[in-house]
């Protein structure tokens, strides 16, 4: 049953990856909790990222470079590479699974319509951004994102998340995480341009691409190649490392749970 369900989800993941190639145009202007109109950005483009998991070695170079580039406070991350230790119960074999996570710049982002002050919005090129001058820090968007891609930045006290490094893309640079990836696992580009590297790779690997949590109907635009479909939705994993804090709540170290 569980396996069947997960296989089904895996198929859904593939379907959704395919469906995303058809531009969802007329989402704008409707009732409560519908997507508001997009604004700013180049409407002739649609940025997306393809992550080739076969190339990812879990070095966290992206995590670090993003952290430096975007000045996230200590302990908060716009991107992180989840690392799973997977044990086959029958054979006892152990394998490792790397899963870089970041904002999926969803085509139907649930974080956008919830924002009560229009601080979170989607640009015409698909990038979901936060105007932190307008954000009231209600954290509604943090709750609405199914991927935990958002957090309240403790320095600015406003919502923060991956922006696909829009400030770099807009001046022709690559995002910090893409630039620093040792294996070239992260490919970003315009999927409306059929000649872009990402478009060519998506065409080539079309049937093997997966997105996270397709059942949420968010139509993510971070596509994974070489993904184990059991990790598409909440994997049955337990977190192993917790940070340890002293009485004042200051972080003093890490602890392995159940080891």
């Amino acid at each position: 049953m569980d396996f069947a369900r997960r296989t089904l989800l895996g198929q859904m993941a593939r379907l959704t990856a395919g469906a995303a190639l058809v531009p969802l145009s007329s989402l704008a202007n409707a009732g409560i909790n519908d997507q508001p109109p997009r604004r700013e950005g180049d409407s002739s483009k649609r940025y997306a990222m393809l992550i080739d998991l076969r190339q990812c070695i879990g070095c966290q170079a992206c995590t670090v470079s993003c952290h430096i580039e975007n000045e996230a406070p200590l302990g908060s991350f716009r991107t992180i590479v989840s690392q799973y230790e997977v044990e086959n119960e029958d054979t006892g074999d152990i394998a490792t699974m790397m899963l870089p996570r970041l904002c999926n710049h969803c085509e139907a982002p649930p974080c956008v319509p919830v924002c009560p002050v229009q601080a979170t919005y989607q640009r015409e090129d698909g990038i979901v951004v936060v105007n932190n001058e307008a954000c009231v820090g209600c954290a509604y968007c943090v709750q609405a994102c199914p991927y935990d891609a958002r957090f309240i930045n403790e320095k600015t006290q406003t919502a923060d998340k991956c922006t696909f490094c829009a400030h770099r893309l807009d001046v022709g640079l690559l995002p910090a995480c893409v630039e620093s990836c040792v294996g070239g696992a992260r490919i970003i580009g315009d999927i409306r341009d059929p000649d872009s590297q990402i478009s060519r790779m998506m065409a080539e690997h079309h049937d093997d691409l997966m997105v996270l949590k397709p059942e949420q109907g968010t139509s993510p635009h971070v596509f994974y190649l070489g993904m184990d479909e059991r990790f598409v939705t909440r994997p049955l994993a337990d977190p192993a490392i917790w940070d340890v804090r002293d009485n004042e709540g200051k972080e003093i170290g890490y602890e392995f749970a159940g080891h």
Binding site: F77, Y84, V86, D90, Q143, R230, A237, D238, I241, W242
Partner: peptide
């Protein structure tokens, strides 16, 4: 096939609503 998975590294997620 069944799996036992452990997430080796977990970032700290703060409560967003107090």
């Amino acid at each position: 096939m069944s799996l036992l998975a452990t997430e080796i590294l977990t970032p700290r997620y703060e409560l967003a609503w107090y």
